[in-house]
Design a protein around this nucleic acid. Structure first.
Lengths: 170, 170
DNA sequence: CTCACCCGTGCAACTAGTTGCACAAGCCCC
DNA sequence: GGGGCTTGTGCAACTAGTTGCACGGGTGAG
């Protein structure tokens, strides 16, 4: 149920249209919450109906709708952030395959693991580069900048988890 | 779509009833794929209809149904393990909350993070104990034992990821 | 100018998973 | 040996997310 709230966070930072939100999700929050544009449009409509966000006509096209957070939406976000979060487990097809390797083609699985490891390596490198470029001095951060950095750190550490695990595997 | 296949893996190791599978999911595979008993019963019925598994009457109660993998199910599992796996991202409410901390009660969030960190710490300790007890000499493992150990390693490394990240946070 | 293509929005149908509850069989205690 | 409790199976209703497609309004090439 976090998609609504992820959208609220994004819209609090800056109002935007459906497609803009979709693109913002390709970075930062998107490390930890992925969504298709269809899902985002659907949820935005519902949030509008519930009064969490308000839409205004955009300027570039007739059909464009620019959303911003209402007072109610703000309150909802605040309340949600205050509720405790149960720890969620990662769902990984790959882990299931590893566990069942005896019942399939072990050699082929190893090749896939190798590929995935390369992919995670390059994502890790990408994230680390982002960190160097955008947060050269993390010690001085506060407020939203700090929050963004901490989530990026989560992305980096997560990629390290993958690289380390898959390296043990191969 | 991995639940079917996770059940196949579990049933290949040993035939079992719905409730037994539910309990097996509380460990090992369950680190990476959690499911409620309702979901498991539903999927077992579908798999039976599709001919992936066969049910026989259990001994302890009239209604008990003991499932085992058919030749077709085995083939499906083998084929699935051979298909490449797209990398899936972790979905984390907590990350969204961290990212939106400016718009809520930062102090309360920190307290929750602290709690979750303690929980991950204790799970990590539990997993490490399992490893010591059940795999005193990992170097000598092969086949299914090796697979089980490697997945447990994934669970351990994942918990370390959480502890590390949340420690950076607080 | 206009036609072909692209882009942003969105609907429809489907699948996966969750929540809440029901029911029957065994068990356990008096 | 009967009444309440627990356990295993499962249905029903709902929510979240995915996949595939449609449509209308620009935009740019000829």
């Amino acid at each position: 149920m976090a998609l609504e709230h992820a959208l609220l966070v994004s819209l609090r930072e800056r109002p935007g249209t459906g497609i803009e939100l979709t693109r913002r999700f390709d970075r930062s929050i998107g490390f930890f919450w992925r969504a298709t544009h269809q899902q985002i449009y659907k949820v935005l409509r519902r949030m509008e109906a519930d009064g969490w966000v308000a839409a205004s006509a955009g300027d570039s096209r007739r059909t464009e709708r620019r959303y911003e957070v209402t007072a109610l939406g703000d309150e909802q976000l605040r309340a949600w952030i205050a509720t405790p979060t149960p720890p969620v487990a990662l769902r990984s097809d790959l882990a299931v395959k590893m566990r069942g390797a005896s019942y399939g083609d072990r050699r082929a699985l190893l090749a896939h693991v190798e590929e995935l490891r390369a992919e995670h390596r390059s994502r890790l490198a990408h994230f680390e580069q982002l960190e160097r470029e955008q947060f050269p001095d993390p010690g001085s951060l506060t407020g939203r900048g700090l929050d963004t950095w901490l989530v990026l750190r989560g992305g980096i550490i997560q990629e390290r988890f993958w690289v380390q695990w898959l390296t043990e595997y191969v």
